[in-house]
């Protein structure tokens, strides 16, 4: 009777736990469409499963503690009142080694109680230190065995016949995946501006964003007020690699490695480069203090189209020639 009730409780809890954790796992897995999605999803499931398992174990434990306390209370009350225990309660008295105890001793822990310690004293005496002959904790032995099996599988999977990818194969797969994702993400996006299609932005808010980018990335070499420093002055009319939004955009994007100008295309998005180039050009003629002497040729901002064409067809040469 009673055991049936407990079994029923356990089944209900199991289903509650299972559904709750699978929902959590689902929720966590859903937005995981990012590059590490596959791994994250698997990990989430594994975590979900472990969590559910732990929950069930904890609940089972609570049930057992509850059962035990219930018996204790009944027994104590019976003793106090001098009444005989009802039969079904008496039958619940823990027998020596019931199923759970046996399982526990076999797979979890099996210490000899402190009271019976003398039975397993090995009578070693090292400067007063004694040693007991407790058996190895079964869970510890099992853990050791599981790690050894795991290791064997691991070595097989990656090296002896399994299909585990090598580090460089993993890298290749990752790069191919990224390529596809970038293609999807970039399709028709505003970030696809390049040196041919770029236009000068004049919206004050956007130029202000450009200023923020400038301050954290460019000011170190070109000065807080664009007056120049390690790099040239950006406020005068002279440009080493060509002025105008298209040339400035391109210089920022691909850099001038020989002269220390960093290629920013890997660091800044195209739209950010456009913003910072627009900001720089908004500062033309501001004459900041301590300005560096002009370098390069005076750039005449003629109709932008022809200049852009030259840059587009002869990328590297333009800079060198203008110098």
């Amino acid at each position: 009777m009673k055991s049936l009730k407990y079994l029923l409780t356990l089944v209900v809890m199991l289903s509650v736990a299972g559904s709750a954790w699978s929902q959590v796992a689902d929720a966590a897995a859903a937005p995981a469409a990012d590059p590490t999605g596959e791994f994250a999803r698997i990990m989430t499931w594994v975590l979900g499963a472990i969590g559910a398992l732990l929950f069930i174990v904890a609940m089972a434990y609570v049930v057992r503690v509850n059962q035990f306390l219930y018996k204790r209370v009944l027994t104590l009350e019976a003793q106090r009142n001098g009444v005989n225990l009802p039969d079904d309660v008496a039958s619940l008295q823990p027998k020596e080694d019931d199923f759970w105890t046996k399982m526990r001793k076999k797979y979890w822990e099996n210490p000899v109680p402190i009271e019976r310690e003398a039975d397993i004293d090995l009578h070693h005496d090292y400067d007063g230190i004694r040693e007991l002959d407790n058996s190895l904790p079964p869970w510890w032995v099992n853990l050791f065995i599981v790690t050894i099996i795991w290791s064997a599988i691991y070595m097989f999977y990656y090296h002896f016949g399994g299909s585990g990818p090598s580090s460089s194969e993993e890298y290749k797969m990752d790069m191919e995946k990224a390529k596809k994702e970038i293609a999807i993400a970039s399709a028709g996006s505003a970030n696809m501006v390049d040196e041919n299609s770029v236009t000068l932005l004049t919206d004050a808010a956007v130029v202000a964003q450009g200023e923020t980018i400038y301050t954290s990335n460019c000011a170190a070499c070109h000065g807080q007020a664009l007056e120049g420093g390690i790099g040239p002055n950006l406020t005068d009319q002279n440009w080493i690699h060509g002025g105008g939004i298209k040339n400035v955009f391109k210089t920022i994007k691909v850099g001038v490695p020989d002269k220390g100008m960093v290629a920013w295309e890997k660091t800044l998005r195209a739209s950010d480069i456009q913003k910072v180039a627009s900001f720089i050009l908004s500062k033309q003629g501001t004459n900041p203090p301590n300005a560096k002497a002009p370098q390069g040729d005076i750039w005449k901002d003629e109709a932008a189209a022809p200049a852009a064409d030259t840059t587009a067809t002869k990328p590297a040469a333009t800079g060198a020639e203008s110098k």
């Binding site: 230190i129 040693e131 007991l132 002959d133 058996s135 190895l136 510890w140």
Partner: peptide, 13 residues
Amino acid sequence: PKAANRPVYSYKL
């Protein structure tokens, strides 16, 4: 074991 004045739990371990 000295400080606790207790025997070592398991020689086999």
